[in-house]
Design a protein around this nucleic acid. Structure first.
Lengths: 259, 259
DNA sequence: CGCCCTGTTGAATCTGGTCAAACTAAGTGG
DNA sequence: CCACTTAGTTTGACCAGATTCAACAGGGCG
């Protein structure tokens, strides 16, 4: 009942350019024949409204989701109901891949706002990978990137204080926006303070307090969900990011932020 | 100068059975021809002593390591030198795979005790994957498993208190030992209290205190690095593990621990 | 217009960190 | 074989940062 499919033909034509599959094949330099083949496997476009569930933990692994617009949070939970948000996902990202070996989703995915996705059947996806071997390699790269991202989050959760966590978080968002050619210094958050706090392992009140402190110190300007980064150099100093380790997003984008 | 290679021919003969590659091909039901092919790519066996470095963060990605015996810790660090251990690795596990997309290791790997590994050249490994397509799929499975494991660690670091962290940790170890047909209730830790605390995001003093408390309460018995789990049911209750999510190790082994 | 959700701020509390010291085990070298 | 060193572990006392509880403000939406 939560799911609301909008099954339109004609989605495929634009899908490869606009959704995650593009990212999957572009770096490998696939020719247009491959690209066309790839498009055939994009089964349907769907739209989820804020709070709607894409999939639940334990559900059979039947679809991979490529986000076209909007944003999604994923989380897991303890047996007594505490949640840990494990990621916020934006357009261009692929969701559900880590269900590969258990054949069931290991986390729950919920739309943060109205979100449009391409829903790709796993069976089709596997067939696709058989026909275009480099797809497998691309998947390995994407998962390797996710592992690194998670490891940096572990560093954050295990070793950083609340200020460092928020600074790291803002910079990470900034880089992801820069990557998509949005302003890296001015953006709107699609997630609540509660979600941010949950993700970073601190209370939402602490998030509020530190946003206020950053604002007093002139590092950022925050008006509810609208954020302006005013002193990225300072944010970088506060964040104490991993040293020689790879950045959260693309290495190229890293250069945008002076060190 | 830290590296001490013992280059022996004849390693290949036993390697596939004894090191991680076996785990990579076995689940796919490779025939003996494939297995033989696979063995050819095991270049050399090496031994690292306690504290020696297998690879550093930022090093070029040239080898994948399959642990034959001993144990290894991996960690990343902030720019001001704080470390976060991201994993302890035991025989049968493959190390270094998440360097795939950046072509450099994203973390540092250090032997916890005298450790024997098979060092597999990445170039050979890629050639191998080309010849046996299912190897790619196995790699995807392994990385998917690692992502899930990391997500559970994020839940632990973000939402659990010190007692829950220790209980979760002991159970995770127990399952991994059970998987390798070692006693799930009695084992020696190869890592120090400091390493455990670092991994779990708590101080080593807290680790000590809680081990003592568990002992007082009759849940475990701990004498320095020798641990006996005396009440696994209670440990499970304390740990508050992820609900419907996949277990840290194999699902089959999970059944060993009553819920 | 008023309700409700989100965000903000204050004050009390507490878990776990930090610092310090004693103790144990395992080497190391004379 | 023993004195000495070193690394690891345990325990106590104190303290700080973050949580919890609670009250309140402000937007957005019905």
């Amino acid at each position: 009942m939560a799911r609301q499919a909008t099954q339109e033909p004609g989605c495929a034509a634009i899908s490869c350019q606009s959704c995650g599959l593009y990212q999957l094949c572009l770096p490998m330099g696939l020719d247009s024949a491959d690209t066309a083949l790839l498009d055939r496997y994009v089964k349907r476009k769907r739209t989820f409204k804020r709070g709607q569930v894409l999939y639940r933990s334990g559900d059979a692994f039947t679809y991979v989701y490529a986000i076209r617009s909007g944003s999604v949070k994923t989380y897991i939970s303890t047996d007594d109901g505490r949640l840990q948000i494990t990621g916020f996902h934006v357009p261009g990202e692929l969701l559900g891949l880590n269900a590969i070996d258990e054949k069931r989703y290991s986390c729950e995915a919920v739309a943060l706002e109205t979100t449009s996705v391409c829903e790709i059947s796993v069976a089709c996806f596997e067939e696709l990978a058989r026909q275009i071997p480099s797809v497998h390699y691309q998947m390995l790269r994407m998962m390797s990137k996710e592992i690194r991202h998670n490891q940096e989050l572990m560093l954050l959760l295990g070793k950083k204080n609340a200020e460092e966590r928020l600074a790291t978080y803002l910079l990470s968002l900034s880089r992801r926006f820069a990557m998509r050619n949005y302003s890296p210094t001015q953006f709107n958050l699609s997630m609540s303070r509660g979600d941010i706090g949950n993700y970073l392992g601190i209370a939402e009140e602490t998030v509020s307090r530190i946003f206020s402190r950053f604002q007093e110190e002139g590092v950022i300007s925050s008006e509810r969900r609208h954020i302006i980064l005013k002193d990225i150099k300072r944010l970088n100093a506060i964040a104490h990011e991993p040293s020689s380790a790879a950045p959260l997003a693309l290495p190229l984008v890293q250069a945008l932020h002076s060190r």
